[in-house]
Design a protein around this nucleic acid. Structure first.
Length: 580
DNA sequence: GCAAGGTC
């Protein structure tokens, strides 16, 4: 769809504008026919020619056609690295239709949300395309493509030959897929190899004016039974203890930060047992219907210019949270906290229009919309306030503490029903310096417990923290390793865990056993290093050919080793199958 | 048939 209108740009004066849109990348890369699967050895893909292919011919042609009549081109893609590259793709398409469009005639608007004044300011103060960011993305594309395709063909052909996978199956390798799988295998191994250890500790109970309190040992627990026993016997010489400290503290339970994609996915997985893919899909549908803001964002803050009052007012009509929303509008709301992440492209996820959730047919959409609204209302609310009493007890030479919490003001917790913060059992009325008889003082033992298998919210958090994938792709990578048969979801008492399959386990163990020089194909370090090198391209301390050369060199060596040891890799897979 | 990144 193209829109025509007039606008007076300060730099150019009155202009006739045609505005059109793209949807993500316009072009991708591919190998020419001699390098298709089966036509060459996969190792050649590190240096094979690369051709550009158009992904959306209609969008591409429309830009070329419209550009033929244009003197200037203005790019309005997301203001992040990929957005810069898509801007360059648009320029390339426009140049196909109009050879006189020089790169100097390209303007790029810098904007991060669609508030009217912000958009006008962006239109009036355009900058140039950042070719360094464009180079960085081209580099990422090429690394991911060459590494992914070469290793995928190598693994697939090799494992088919050794009958590890079926002829129709594909054993893919990707720079994000394998670290994702690696996290899951790593956790699985830690659970399996866990050896419980016995520990000992002291526990005390006192009673005052009929109210009992359990105190726990400040030392926690120790693994030396005899030592704890000696301490215990020293304590037993006293049948009274002393309250050495009584701490009355006002505590704050912070309202949540503005919502990012990763947080949305983690919470939907935890609260509603929705997969990352499904929660993002539901948010996307709500966005397309105009109910939610753009759902793929890393930004956990809102623009200063945001109309909070108007956004809250729209929710006032709801039967569930309307009263709360109008209360915020009438009695004053808090400006949301600002987190520390900003992708410079989108604000945090928030409701933009009201919808009665009972009119939504999809249960996922109902849950996601309600969650986003309650989260937003919570962001605009006051923190919850409580009073915490902590008593310290000295028994013999040992110290113990007990605490009680009284919630004084629930504030945001009234509307953010997903979080519990409640008044606990109260401590007796103690005074500092008071001596008190020990009603029970015991030495107890316990065992360290194994870590739990991986859950999806934990996996998302790990990927996010290690730079594996982006807000938009984390869910895809999890789905990918699932569909390749590398991992499985397993339900245990209402919690869904992710564990590796024999194949996934065998691949990681096999690759880890190969002893590459300076690389791990299953850990997140290479991806992190690539990310750092891309940043160097962006700031200008390295060039794309330099980075590409270095990275290719490393992967080429790993490829050679993997290729030589294909039989061992296959054996690693059969060994795992035999073991289970 | 292969990646990861956009987006629908």
């Amino acid at each position: 769809m193209n829109y025509d209108f007039s606008y007076r740009f300060p730099i150019h004066g009155a202009c006739e504008v045609t505005m059109t849109s793209v949807l993500g990348h316009l072009t991708g890369i591919d190998f020419p026919p001699p390098f298709q699967w089966g036509k060459c050895v996969p190792g050649r893909l590190f240096d094979a020619d690369i051709v550009e292919k158009v992904l959306k011919q209609d969008v591409y042609d429309n830009i070329a056609n419209e550009a033929a009549k244009a003197q200037l081109l203005m790019i309005w893609t997301d203001c992040d690295r990929e957005g810069e590259y898509i801007g360059y793709e648009i320029y390339t398409a426009a140049r196909k239709g109009n050879h006189s469009l020089e790169i100097a005639a390209i303007w790029r608007s810098k904007f991060s949300h669609l508030e009217r004044n912000h958009v006008i300011a962006a239109a009036n103060n355009p900058i140039g395309l950042d070719m360094k960011s464009v180079e960085a993305v081209a580099c990422r594309q090429e690394v991911d493509f060459r590494v992914g395709t070469s290793f995928t063909r190598l693994l697939t052909d090799g494992l088919r030959q050794h009958k590890i996978i079926e002829q129709k199956e594909v054993a893919s390798y990707g720079t994000c897929q394998f670290p994702t799988l690696g996290f899951i295998v790593d956790r699985y191994r830690r659970v399996k190899s866990f050896i419980p250890e016995q520990f000992w500790y002291l526990a005390v109970e006192v009673k005052h004016e009929g109210v009992a309190a359990s105190f726990s040992w400040v030392t926690g627990h120790l693994f030396d039974r005899l030592y704890v026993l000696i301490l215990y016997q020293q304590c037993l010489e006293h049948d009274q203890g002393t309250i050495t400290k009584l701490d009355l503290k006002r505590t704050t339970n912070w309202r949540p930060l503005p919502l990012t994609t990763v947080e949305l996915q983690k919470d939907c997985s935890r609260l509603f047992k929705m997969s990352a893919k499904n929660s993002l899909a539901a948010a996307e549908k709500l966005y397309n219907k105009g109910f939610l803001s753009y759902p793929r964002t890393e930004t956990d803050s809102f623009p200063a210019s945001m109309d909070f009052s108007g956004t809250l007012q729209k929710q006032a009509q709801d039967s569930r949270w309307g009263l709360y929303a109008s209360g915020l509008v009438q009695n004053g709301f808090q400006t949301p906290r600002n987190g520390k992440y900003d992708d410079k492209a989108h604000p945090a996820i928030h409701p933009v229009n009201y919808v009665d959730i009972s009119s939504l047919s999809s249960p996922d959409e109902r849950k996601v919309y309600e969650y986003v609204v309650r989260r937003f209302l919570a962001c605009c609310s006051k923190d919850a306030v409580g009073q915490q009493t902590t008593a310290t007890l000295k028994w013999g030479d040992q110290f113990f503490t007990a605490s009680g919490l009284v919630v004084l003001e629930k504030n945001y917790l009234d509307i953010y029903t997903y979080k519990k913060w409640e008044t606990t059992k109260q401590l007796p009325n103690l005074t500092e310096g008071q001596t008190i008889s020990i009603s029970s003082g015991r030495m107890k033992d316990g065992k360290t417990s194994p870590p739990k298998h991986m859950t999806e919210p934990e996996l998302i958090a790990l990927m996010d923290a290690n730079g594996i994938g982006t807000d938009a792709t984390i869910a895809d990578h999890i789905e990918k390793v699932l569909s390749r048969g590398y991992i499985m979801k397993q339900k245990q008492a209402s919690v869904e865990y992710i564990i590796p399959s024999d194949l996934g386990m065998g691949l990681i163990e096999g690759l880890d056993a190969m002893g590459f020089d300076n690389i791990s194909l299953s850990k997140p370090f290479m991806r992190k290093q690539l990310e750092e090198l891309l940043q160097e391209i962006v700031v200008g301390t390295k060039t794309k050919p330099e980075v590409l050369g270095d990275i290719k060199h490393i992967y080429r060596q790993a490829y050679a080793v993997t290729s030589r040891n294909m039989a061992a890799l296959a054996r690693s897979c059969t060994d795992i199958m035999a073991r289970t």
